[in-house]
Amino acid sequence: MSEYRGGAQARTALARRHRVRAWEPLPWIVALGFFFAFPKHLGFGTEVLVTILFALSLDLVLGYAGIVTLGHAAFFGVGAYTVGMLAKHGLWNEPLTSLALAGIVGAAVGLGSGLVLLRTRGLTLLMLTLCTMALLEEAGNLAHTWTGGFDGLDSLPIAPLLGRFEFSPLYPTTQYLYVLVVLFLCFVFVRTLVYSPFGQSLTGIRENILRMPAVGAPVPRRLAVCYTLSAGIAGIAGGIWAQANAYVNLGTLGLDRAATVLIMLALGGRGRLYGAFVGAIAYMVLSHFLSKIYPTAWQLGLGLLLVVIALFAHNGILGLGETVWRRLRVSRPLNMGAPQHRTPNPPL
C-alpha cells in the first residue's frame, strides 16, 4: 500500500464512519413490521424494545468507556420508581413529563454515585456498583409505604399519551409505538455521541485508561459525564417500562436484571451500538421459548454460551458476523471505533 493511499484511506474511513449505512433503517422497518404482523405479541415486543434501550445505555458505559458494572439496574429501577411513585400517590401521571423526570432522576443518581465510585477500579468498582444497587433495593424494600415494599406498586394510573392515546394492558399498541419512538430518539442521541470526539475519548479510556491522563484528559470527569448520560437513559428505560406495564416492583433494581443486561450486551457484541439490539432480541426470544418449558436446560445452555463467548467470541454475535464479513471482503477498511481485540489488562 503506498504512503498516500494508506493515509487517504484512513482519513476517509474516519470521515465516513458516522454516516448512516444502507442497512441501518432495517431494524426500524422490522420493528414497524412487527407491529402490523404480530398484533397479539405487542406486549412481548414492547418488553424487548425497553430491554434494547436499557442495554444501549449500558453499552455507553461498558462497550465504549470499558467500565464493568454489576449495578446498572440501579438506574433502571430508580427511573421506574420515579414514574411509579409519582403516579401511585396521585402526584403526577402525565407520561412524557414523568418519563423526562425518570431520566433526570436516573441521571442525578448516576452523577452522584459516579463522582464517588468511578475513582476506583476492578473488583472494588464492581463491588461498589453492586452494593449501591443492593442498597437501593433494600431501601425500596424498607420504605414500603412509598414503594409498596416487596410487592411493588401496581395498577399505576398513567394518563393517556398526549391526552389521547390510552395505555391499554390488553392491547398495548400505544405502548409499543411510544417505546419505539423513545428508543429511536435515544438511539440517535447515543449514536451521535459515540461518533463524536467525546465518544472517541471514551474509546481511549477503554483501550488504555492509564494513558488518558498523560494526554491531558480529565478521566474522572469524562467518565462521570458518560455514566450520568448512561444512567439517564437507563432511567428512561425504567420509567417507560413502568408506564408500559403500569406497575413497578423491586425486580427492576435487582442483581438479576443487572446481570441479564450485561449478558445480553456481551451476547450481541459490546461497543457496537447494534449489539444491544441483537443481544436483547436473541436473549429474549430464546428465553421466551425455552425458559418456561425447560428452565434448567435454558440455564445450562446460557452458561455454556457465556463460557463460549468469554473464551472464543469476545465481541458477541456481531463480532462473529464482522469476522465472517471481513473474510468475504478482504480489503474492507478498518471498522474504527469498535473494539476488535480483547485488550489485555494494562501492565501494572
Binding site: 484512513a10 482519513r11 474511513a13 474516519l14 451521535t192 455521541l193 463524536s196 470526539p197 467525546f198 465518544g199 472517541q200 475519548s201 474509546t203 481511549g204 483501550e207 488504555n208 494513558r211 494526554v215 491531558g216 484528559a217 469524562r222 459525564v225 478498518l334 474504527m336 471505533g337 473494539p339 476488535q340 481485540h341 485488550t343
Partner: peptide, 24 residues
C-alpha cells in the same frame, strides 16, 4: 490505544490538546 487505528490514537491526543474532546 491498542485496538484503535494509528490515526485515532493521535486524534485522541490532538483533540484533547485543542479542547475538542468534550464535544458531543
Amino acid at each position: 490505544f491498542r485496538g484503535l487505528s494509528v490515526l485515532e490514537n493521535v486524534y485522541i491526543a490532538v483533540a484533547e490538546r485543542m479542547g475538542v474532546a468534550p464535544s458531543m
